[in-house]
Nucleic acid binder design. Structure first.
Lengths: 154, 154
DNA sequence: TTTTAAAAGCATCTTAGTTGCATTTATTTT
DNA sequence: AAAATAAATGCAACTAAGATGCTTTTAAAA
């Protein structure tokens, strides 16, 4: 998305067009995997204050611009929302994949979360389905490494 | 389970029968909902050192005695494992329910996690399905409160 | 009873996330 | 275009979960 696109987006949500906000949108929109808060902090360096970053992420989440996924360590990761998200409801009911090697979090948008029937009295809200495992990149690397090792030992 | 039961359990896993370990087993076995680390810490008071508690929980998890569930805040919660769990594999592929009012985590043992087909190259390991919502207790309380309010205002 | 490896305890550190308050700035009003 | 203002940023300090290194204690074995 272009800069003007982001500015329009902020305007639509009644948010001021500020540098920290535009920076965050820029970074997140370029990534296909979700990005952790500490990761964002590092990328932004001292361009944006740590607390400001937390607040930007919080308001973006509330406005339905990004969504939060907790990874295997309990750390918050963020990804851009699909167009169906709004201030009032998040339609991010897709499966997430958390690689246990590189810790990246992928949104598997095409995998819908199956419907579940709750026990009597339990009211279901958001459903979170996260698969831990090894991502394509890391399993490829592991395979290449193994092949190289086999060659050496032969 | 009886004290002797816990002692046998520790022995089976080649773990020494120590007070901190027996205390933790005692507490967790009495709960039907999962218990957070901070909660355990509070219950144990200065009976057990904080660090020791972390280590006890870690080894129990590794040995397949308990399993860890991250709640909506990213905090670790622990519950006793079913009999099918071992050092080598956890069979805790049931749904968890995290109440957003009282923050309790329930194991919905009877709700199996549906099978999912991963994208090419992705190797799935553990699957984590957690439903956020309002538990039976809290929705009952909310209903009772509402009823009382209606009575007053009428 | 002695030995010893494992576990507990203690101090200290790291890191994610929060709170309160002063300062700055994007936008609105004049 | 300048002044006003509400919103957002920046800063300092705090909280809480969890980790690490090292010493002391203790369960179990010799």
């Amino acid at each position: 998305m272009s800069i003007t696109g982001f500015e329009d987006m902020l305007e639509r949500h009644d948010l001021k067009k500020t540098r920290p906000r535009l920076s965050v949108l820029n970074i997140l929109s370029k990534r296909q995997a979700a990005t952790s808060q500490p990761d964002l902090e590092e990328v932004l360096g001292n361009e944006v204050d740590r607390v400001t970053l937390y607040r930007v992420l919080k308001t973006f989440e509330e406005k339905g611009i990004i969504h939060k996924i907790l990874d295997v360590n309990g750390t918050a990761n963020y990804a851009m929302c699909g167009p169906a998200c709004s201030e009032h409801s998040h339609y991010d009911e897709h499966v997430h994949f958390n690689c246990t090697v590189c810790f990246r979090v992928y949104c598997l948008d095409h995998l819908a979360i199956p419907k579940l029937s709750m026990p009597h009295g339990f009211e279901a809200g958001t459903v979170n389905l996260i698969v831990y495992g090894i991502c394509g990149d890391c399993s490829k690397k592991a395979a290449a490494y193994k092949a190289a090792e086999d060659k050496v030992s032969s």
